[in-house]
Design a protein around this nucleic acid. Sequence first.
DNA 1: GTCTATATAGGGATAGAC
DNA 2: GTCTATCCCTATATAGAC
Lengths: 202, 202
Amino acid sequence: MARPRGSDGAQTRERILAVAQELFTRQGYDKTSLRDIAERLDITKAALYYYFPRKEDILLELHLRLQTLGETIIAELEAAPDGAARVAIWPRLANEMIDFMVDNRELLLLHNRNRSAFESLEAAMVQGGRDVEVRFERILSSPAMALRERVRMAAMVGVITEVFGESAAAFEDVPPEELADLVREVIADLTRVPASELHVSD
Amino acid sequence: MARPRGSDGAQTRERILAVAQELFTRQGYDKTSLRDIAERLDITKAALYYYFPRKEDILLELHLRLQTLGETIIAELEAAPDGAARVAIWPRLANEMIDFMVDNRELLLLHNRNRSAFESLEAAMVQGGRDVEVRFERILSSPAMALRERVRMAAMVGVITEVFGESAAAFEDVPPEELADLVREVIADLTRVPASELHVSD
DNA sequence: GTCTATATAGGGATAGAC
DNA sequence: GTCTATCCCTATATAGAC
């Protein structure tokens, strides 16, 4: 446990990422200096540069972790033929998304709080449209789906990111699974035929 | 029209705010320097300081505009007694929120993209809890409401901010009123009794 | 693998003329 | 009300010793 000489290596790297994630989320990426991170870890700024050539690279790595996770869902969506088929599988994928959020609230929060910073990152990326958000927007824009369904697709994403992201603090004391169940319920409601098209006495 | 000597005054102020809003949204608050803003307006950095003592003050003013608008809704919510009464009026307020978003997408986008910057601002504010978001979170946290309703309240906010905010680009070509109607429909669906509690053949 | 020391740039902010 | 000139600080990043 007690690391020997020049500290461990891969371990330090992880610790840097953990601290960075926390500070980036709390104070924002731009307002967090390398000094802040280094002091928290009791190492020097220069030491950071051994692991990450540029500050951006820290953010990038965090970004990629979220991307990898989202990738699975987006890929499934893209695999389905454009149009009604995508509408059909979406509710299932939304549920996958919920499971994934339960385990990764922090990463989502980091992302939400630093949207503009992440975007500068994406601009610097070589790949034109590998980014999960860009790909999702593309799907959402498709005229092959009915507008109502497109709106509902966006709505479901909004529900999930709000409850597990920005409003997460309000549900701190709620067991994650209970919260997830309630959100699943909401998703189910959005999947059903809207009230305006039912002959139901309200 | 052709402004006389040293330009107009209040007009310039507005132009500064307009340009700032655009750049802050596009590139992010931190990545936008006063130089950027000044060059776009063909004035010098120093001229900016005549209107705004600090860079933060530009952001602050933009912030306050959004706050003023949100204030109305939050105040109504707070006026109702905690608990079921708030659940009852919320759907109506959500509709107000939609109307308001239709007219103020840009301001919302600015806010979403610069969450952390706005938060540093709020920390500097004297008032402990005048901030709309803080007050909403407080309401959302109240144990006087059923957890299901609290989740749905958050969900509705998520729907609105997602469709009119982050995913707005995907609905660019859709007439705002048509979009608003579809979102209203979603809100209505979230207000109804969930499917799991109905005896409806699905 | 981590340090000290330093380079360098860019940003916010001010003083004072016009 | 706007400009020129300039200050000062902080932040990223590098060089090179241990």
